[in-house]
Design a binder for these strands. Sequence first.
DNA 1: ACAGTTTCCCGTAAATGC
DNA 2: TGCATTTACGGGAAACTG
Lengths: 422, 422
Amino acid sequence: EKQPCMPTHPQRPLIIKTGVQFTTKVRLLVKLPEVDYQLKVKTTFDKDLPPGRVSRQFFILTNNTKVMDIEDYSNGCLSVEFRHLLKERKYINGTKGNEGLLSVTEELHSLSFEACFTVQGLTIDLETCSLPLVVISNVSQLAGGWASVMWYNFLSDEPRNLAFFGNPPRANWSELAEVLSWQFSTFAGLGLNKEQLTMLGEKLFGQYPSCSDYQVSWSKFSKENILGKPFSFWMWLDSILELIKKHLLPVWNENYIMGFVSKEMERALLKDREPGTFLLRFSESHLGGITFTWVQHGDNGEVKFNSVEPYTKSRLSALPFADIIRDYKVISDGVVPKNPLKFLYPDIPKDEAFGRLYNSQPSKVYPYIASTLIPISELRQSANIPPPSCRSPEPPMTPGEFDMLNAQLCFDMDDMGSPYSE
Amino acid sequence: EKQPCMPTHPQRPLIIKTGVQFTTKVRLLVKLPEVDYQLKVKTTFDKDLPPGRVSRQFFILTNNTKVMDIEDYSNGCLSVEFRHLLKERKYINGTKGNEGLLSVTEELHSLSFEACFTVQGLTIDLETCSLPLVVISNVSQLAGGWASVMWYNFLSDEPRNLAFFGNPPRANWSELAEVLSWQFSTFAGLGLNKEQLTMLGEKLFGQYPSCSDYQVSWSKFSKENILGKPFSFWMWLDSILELIKKHLLPVWNENYIMGFVSKEMERALLKDREPGTFLLRFSESHLGGITFTWVQHGDNGEVKFNSVEPYTKSRLSALPFADIIRDYKVISDGVVPKNPLKFLYPDIPKDEAFGRLYNSQPSKVYPYIASTLIPISELRQSANIPPPSCRSPEPPMTPGEFDMLNAQLCFDMDDMGSPYSE
DNA sequence: ACAGTTTCCCGTAAATGC
DNA sequence: TGCATTTACGGGAAACTG
């Protein structure tokens, strides 16, 4: 009869941050005969939690009951706004079993809603509760929390299995890929295409043929670090989502960022292209970085590839990415600097692609001389040697432009709060 | 017998921000005969405030009494740490008189400390209170609050005149100048010299001969906007202090920033200098900006001056100022870009002055090509016309290098809390 | 010592009050 | 409506805590 849902961090529901206010909506689905009846709803955090399961205990700071008025009732929806959830004592719960191995973002909580009313001499108790919630204390934990929320709602059909991460199930890659693409389409506006997802699959499984029924463990997805890197697969992917959201939105949505391409594939794609052809790719070695790679021909006709040092959020907040592409210059030994970027892969003239996205105009600040920042690379001969062993022949592949899936995803997080009622 | 003082915001004592913890120290100056006596000290905010004088009322959130233990007592100093001061109801105090004209940063408060103890059958009550305090709710009010604290402690000899800003006295320019110089020396490390102070005086009084006994009103100092500008004199000066503190500290302390020079003076200084001689000056038109002006010779031998668009904190956090000076380039119509900055005024070769301060080295990020941001100006002929009417002859003046006062200032804010005892 | 977690709090943006 | 003031909270960093 009631439907709870949990918007908190925009676009990342079911995550609550301590000290930050959050809102809850509860909807009464039955029509009450008495219209002027005032329904009091009480909200409790972690109402009847199995003790010893959770190591942190929280409570709601503000008044936890609210009256559902007639006007609220008219649209059948009661909205309650709470402020500030605060941490209390910690259970030192024995650290036995794998409980102790759970991180805070794997610890699931819930909100309970209770109401009681009398109709025609009949006393009716209503109770419902939210989907599992993750409680964080700093935005730095948001990515980890969101991984949990995704994994739970993607792989569990139980409404409230707070012990889910004691033994989390694996995901089929083909289904996980859909979830990841959907992340990009809701978070950034445009999902991932087949090639991009293939590259992500290879990051998880290695260079196997794209057999799509591998399984991914929760640990591999978001807990273990990628081999040789100090971050997990999801942390890496989320850093890219954040980068897109804050600094690359228009470029991403114009579908100009190939983004997920292995270096080998990148070279295979570029090698037969016009010199000055470039593509945009996310850094695999650092969190939240984007680089461009362009192809050029050396003096004796051999093909050379160059990639700039990836741009991170701090650089991009000094200079928008489209302007970097417009203004980027390579200077070598006193020659007039030139922009090596001519065609966005496969063959779109740079200004045709990015023209509309250029931002910074020279400001008119009379009597001063306007000044802009120009990203510049000094290219000495020695800096331009191709890496030792990367001339292995690449498997041929149809380059082709991106054609996005735009699949109608049946899994829609906006509805996550409503799959059941009591 | 007790001395209260008030460190809160580092370097800006006597300002308390709501929601941010602050500490108070109270010292007992008499030696008590009974050594093992425990002294309880109670702290009250705005204990006996004349009602109707203050429009906001605050209270201390945490436990406001603390015991002074023997070990605390051994160094004669009790330190109490409080958390979070919160705003309560506002007096709507009639808005009569000029009370209504006071801004929050002019509203003075105080902390009272009380203790009671019995020695040899004699009951002794102790009470003391702090110097006037300013309560702010956001760092954006810090500059305004600090102006008040300075003005009060500089011009009032009363320990606790909370109505001070109902009719604040004027300051003698010669004394105010010392306070301002002292601000730079405590805040940034190096004070202001005579020439710099003269320029500041002219900003306040106009182009009069440097008669040093003008008086500055409180309003002119920090309330009224500078003619034609959307900020007051102190707001402007404080924005520069902040800029120095965050982005220019080494350059400032090396005494390389002339900073406060009128444009006329600047031209007079530069006009006979070697082409490529430049000086560093703070923007007068915008808050927290620094620019450099260099002299060059035109085709037909005439002297030309150029200034870049001032660099503000956002630009400087993308690129340190010394690196900007090192890398700055002017490009005009396809010519190889050149750095026009050669000698720091009067004649120090640029790299000799700034060499030690250069930061960013091309990062080694194999296999990527390192990339840096270069500040660049495109100089077309049309952009280089001297402003309409600024060729009036300048009064001659000895240029000379900076020789700082380094005056031993007798007014030391660190001791502000201790000038009286009960 | 150290890593996971929380607290602290500046500084921008938005909301609120007058 | 505009300005003054407060609140909100992201994000970097320090502090905490087992």
